[in-house]
Design a protein around this nucleic acid. Structure first.
Length: 277
DNA sequence: AATTGCGGCAACCGCTCCCAT
DNA sequence: TATGGGAGCGGTTGCCGCAAT
């Protein structure tokens, strides 16, 4: 049956014997389990089984889910499928302007803490955001520094039609430059506005109670200055008085970076018109 | 028409953290 | 207090489809 192989080795209960150490046995067990488990894309039947099982029994123990549901998958795989695809509250459409802005701002602030970013984007998963960043935004920000052509983000979402896909691919190279782009540094310990980069990200993000509070971050370049991670790319980032002003009046619009504003406009035009900017 | 290269997404892997014992 | 298991996270890989050659 499906879960016999999975449950065969209870490694923690085994003692070393025949000269095989526990770690070695662990490894053997893992390999054996892996051989027995299905990998790769999920088919609709598996989705249906998992969905039905979780609907009925919930997700208290992911390792039990595949065994009890009769799926030849690891608990991790089931969890991943549920969390990133099957969950009913998953949003699978376009990334809105607000969502893109939020991702950009939070990434400036938190780095690659996708789960923390995802918390502020209801319906979006960390994996979605990570993929979106890696395939669209990262290139833009890398090229941001070198001022070369970048690829416009795809904003249609994951379930695009072939037509949209073709249109996107035929028109997705735009020229964007960021004349005043800040450069992120690898610094040791930063405490800005209560954010400690050396702490777990959740601890820092916990202080941002709602998306509304993100309005405080509406000045991307200035935020870099607040975080003290800006190299000398212009006075706006190094002016201590300016930084103090931001700290004193966080809700007042300061020094909105023209390069990023332009870039954001490009994104929005691409989304709204589905064509060149 | 066949081949190659590339982009995008889904999924896996390895690691760390948290919590129960 | 130490240990082990489960959960969660970020990085990476593999596959598929499309465009270019």
């Amino acid at each position: 049956m499906t879960h016999t192989a999975v449950g065969i080795f209870k490694v923690k209960d085994m003692k070393s014997r025949n000269g095989v150490s526990r770690p070695e046995m662990m490894s053997i067990s893992q390999k054996y389990q892996n051989l027995c488990l299905k990998k790769g894309a999920w088919d609709p039947d598996e989705d249906q089984i998992l969905r039905a099982y979780i609907k009925r029994y919930g997700t208290r123990n992911w390792n039990e889910v595949p065994k009890a549901a009769g799926l030849l998958r690891s608990g991790k795989s089931c969890r991943f499928r549920w969390m990133n695809y099957l969950r009913p509250d998953i949003k699978r459409g376009n990334f809105s302007k607000e969502e893109v802005q939020t991702i950009i701002k939070l990434h400036e602030m938190l780095g690659n803490s996708w789960s923390a970013i995802a918390e502020k984007l209801p319906g979006r998963t960390d994996n979605d955001i990570k993929n979106f960043w890696n395939t669209h935004l990262r290139k833009s920000f890398n090229n941001n520094i070198s001022n070369t052509a970048v690829q416009a983000p795809k904003l249609e979402g994951t379930q695009t039609s072939e037509e949209e896909s073709k249109q996107r691919k035929s028109s997705n190279i735009i020229d964007v430059s960021f004349p005043t782009a800040p450069k992120i540094l690898n610094s040791e310990d930063h405490h800005v506005n209560g954010i400690n980069e050396n702490k777990r990200v959740e601890d820092n993000v916990g202080s941002l109670e709602s998306i509304g509070e993100l309005s405080l971050l509406d000045q991307p370049s200035s935020m870099e200055a607040q975080m003290g991670r800006v190299e000398d790319y212009g006075e706006a980032y190094t002016d201590q008085m300016g930084v103090q002003e931001l700290l004193d009046y966080p809700n007042v619009s300061h020094n909105f970076d023209a390069g990023q504003e332009f870039w954001m406009n490009c994104l929005m035009k691409t989304q709204l018109h589905g064509n060149k900017v």
